[in-house]
């Protein structure tokens, strides 16, 4: 099939899934006794209604794009890197650790170091999952899940122990960073240009790497057929570790940006579950890089707009999570039905 036709097919599936999830969500809203059309309008206006809202949506879009790009790299050689959640957390931990000596503030250049530290932290965590897979034969889903728990435990221990605020034992988080070490935001908006630029560079770079480099091609070859790749001298295990390292670096960057750009401290919920959300995004995009930015935007929109539900309709804002979940299920359903339909046709 031509690339354009394949993209068209993906888009068609996406549209069908969107429609399906719209139907499901409307049903849920009707059962909950909420006016469906108003709810959708409020939800979307809540993420798009003004420049400030748009900025807020973009500030969620950034980590989602970084993590989804990261997952594309891992998926190329066929890895389900569910450990991305922990890799974000390790990025946040490393960045916070790097910044701890600068409690009195300092030059913004220090932030470069913090971001690099975050990338190293994420890579390290991903590398462990990679080694568990290639050397220990632990499937990356199980290894990753385990490492996620360890990462959360590590954060809790740091927040409650060595990095606690003086005189306080609270799970709420570490002492905020000195304001000179916060990424400067656009004036009056909760969005900072550095994070935005990094997210754009990341998705661009990933598309370039996967499409136009030998390395990207070899990753895909490993994903398609590890045995053949081995025969062709593509060293599958080495490729797997490399892709994990790259994926972890981007996830770690996302975590570091959450620290220096959003929360300005380390807290237990620092990953905001963006890793898991990014997994949904990439599945929804059928691993097509072009679809990542718009789907991330849609999810960010839901995330930010949902805050209006309790404010204006007294609805629980977890509805946005329901929509996201329903959407992903719809994608699988559409996919499955398509297969069934094709299979049926072949039989005839």
């Amino acid at each position: 099939m031509l690339p354009a036709a394949r993209l068209g097919l993906s888009l068609g599936r996406l549209a069908a899934s969107l429609f399906l999830s719209l139907v499901f969500t409307t049903l849920i809203l009707l059962i909950a006794g909420a006016p469906p059309i108003d709810t959708f309008i409020i939800l979307f206006a809540g993420g798009l209604g003004s420049v400030a809202k748009l900025a807020q949506t973009m500030s969620v879009w950034i980590p989602l794009v970084l993590c989804s790009s990261a997952l594309l790299l891992a998926f190329a050689p066929g890895l389900w890197n569910i450990g991305i959640e922990g890799q974000i957390i390790l990025g946040a931990i490393f960045a916070t650790g790097f910044l701890r000596p600068f409690a009195e503030g300092g030059s913004p250049l220090i932030l470069v170091g913090a971001l690099l530290a975050g990338m190293i932290g994420g890579s390290l965590w991903a590398y462990i999952a990679g080694v568990l897979k290639t050397w220990g034969r632990v499937h990356e889903i199980f290894g990753g899940l385990g490492l996620n728990f360890v990462a959360l435990g590590l954060t809790l221990w740091l927040i409650f122990g060595p990095w606690r605020r003086p005189g306080v034992a609270s799970m709420s988080g570490t002492e905020p960073l000195h304001p000179s070490l916060w990424l400067q935001e656009f004036k009056g908006l909760s969005l900072n240009p550095v994070s935005l630029a990094l997210a754009l560079v990341a998705i661009g770079l990933v598309i370039y790497l996967l499409r136009s480099t030998r390395w990207g091609l070899s990753l895909k070859a490993v994903g398609q057929n590890p045995d053949a790749a081995l025969l062709f001298g593509l060293k599958p295990n080495k490729r797997i570790l490399e892709s994990m390292l790259a994926c972890g670096a981007l996830a770690g960057l996302a975590g570091a940006l959450q620290v220096v750009g959003v929360y300005h401290r380390l807290l237990p919920a620092i990953s905001s579950n963006y890793g898991y959300t990014a997994l949904l995004v990439t599945m929804l995009a059928s691993f097509r890089p072009q679809l990542i930015p718009p789907i991330c935007f849609f999810f960010a929109l839901l995330n930010v707009g949902s805050i209006q539900l309790p404010l204006q309709l007294k609805l629980d804002s977890s509805l946005s999570g329901v929509i996201q979940g329903v959407l992903v299920l719809s994608v699988f359903l559409v996919h499955g039905l398509e297969g069934r339909f094709r299979l049926g046709r072949k039989k005839e």
């Binding site: 909760s190 959003v262 807290l267 805050i307």
Partner: peptide, 27 residues
């Protein structure tokens, strides 16, 4: 009164207090 409950990072991942204040301010 306009209220928003469950204002903590565990319940509302990704949203910070200044952002929620912006929301209230716009109301």
């Amino acid at each position: 009164m306009i209220y928003l409950d469950k204002v903590n990072p565990a319940d509302r991942p990704g949203l910070t207090l200044p952002q929620l204040v912006d929301d209230l301010a716009s109301k």
